[in-house]
Design a protein around this nucleic acid. Sequence first.
DNA 1: CGGAAATTTGACCAGTTGGAAAAAATGTTA
DNA 2: TAACATTTTTTCCAACTGGTCAAATTTCCG
Lengths: 214, 214
Amino acid sequence: MPAPSKAKAQPKTRIQKEKQDLILEAALNIFALNGYRGATIDQIAEAAGMSKPNLLYYFPSKEAIHRRLLTGMLDLWLDPLRELDDSGDPIAELRSYIRRKLEMARDFPRESRLFANEMLQGAPHAIDVLEGELKQLVDDKAKVITGWMDAGRINRTDPYHLIFSIWATTQHYADFDVQVRAVLGKARGGEGRFEDAARYLEHLFMDGLRPKAG
Amino acid sequence: MPAPSKAKAQPKTRIQKEKQDLILEAALNIFALNGYRGATIDQIAEAAGMSKPNLLYYFPSKEAIHRRLLTGMLDLWLDPLRELDDSGDPIAELRSYIRRKLEMARDFPRESRLFANEMLQGAPHAIDVLEGELKQLVDDKAKVITGWMDAGRINRTDPYHLIFSIWATTQHYADFDVQVRAVLGKARGGEGRFEDAARYLEHLFMDGLRPKAG
DNA sequence: CGGAAATTTGACCAGTTGGAAAAAATGTTA
DNA sequence: TAACATTTTTTCCAACTGGTCAAATTTCCG
């Protein structure tokens, strides 16, 4: 029995990596659905098709699994913002940022909910990333956006709150999915809702509600 | 020992009402912070300054406390939308709806988080309200908004997604408070952040980002 | 005061949960 | 096949959790 704790950091065999991925996949489902405390190792193990002690052979603790998922997804989460390009056309850049974020809400709803859960709890495991990497990145991109405003290429407004509102509106479709579906009903709550949302959000962020000709 | 179960439905004495309020107040803190499963009766009891059996004298179960909080806040949550007035000025009505919702995020962050937690879990206790009362109300108000569009008083867009985006952007400041604070930093993350948010959101929803003179 | 009703407490319980230990089973390789 | 490392299962445990119950205490009211 060699220290299995090593296995977690860098999986040696391909089998180990496969099992770990299996566990992470199952854990993502359970955590996203029930929150950290609501999830049990037994549930995760069963979903991964193995026994609890077997799962604990690959990860030292429940918290370790959660930490892995969270750090993994934080990177994913930040990617779209990283792509916001200073040298591109402001309107097109922001439009495609909104689209990318909405696609993430559609394609990675479990990750989004995991993140939302963490935020609701006060980000006990992610606060340093928020105050470090995230803040840094947002500060950066806020400058880019401010530059566009200075050049008169988009209306002047608060770049930080602009980014917040893009986060909020897009993630809403993942985190509050039940509500969205319930309100839209069967007719409009199907697959098309993301298309509708994309069209709407684009219009909102670009032109707002007030008619141009006062 | 008369059936204490009656006490929950209609508190007899003023003392009973006071204690129940004390418990609900404490429970709101704990539930909002830890989610339903993350909260323990012991925690709530201690926060309310009483023993666990004593708390259970006033509420029959943990779930009963949670249910009371949830139904109580759903009403509060719907109030601002109810006030949206068909006969008012569209721009002013929507503006003040946004302001009211943002004030709710500022003044009732715990309630907002309780609600967010419930949504993330798939609304197991609130799904009927969402599909019933809430959907009804939104359908109603969507018609009002559509009427304004037909009259050319606001730009044509999807009224349902408009309402979603108002919910999302305003609640974001309660539910993702840690993130907002972390990104804004000490300088701008203080009390003023709600004022900034209000100014920003008003501008966004009214005029969007694209300069009028293309 | 004195008794009844309401409130509070301490002891307890059964089920669950995260996790440990060790043995058993299964490769793997020479 | 023998020796060795890896993986899996069986068994177990201590802490925690929601909730009960009877006894003790306090409050209320004539």
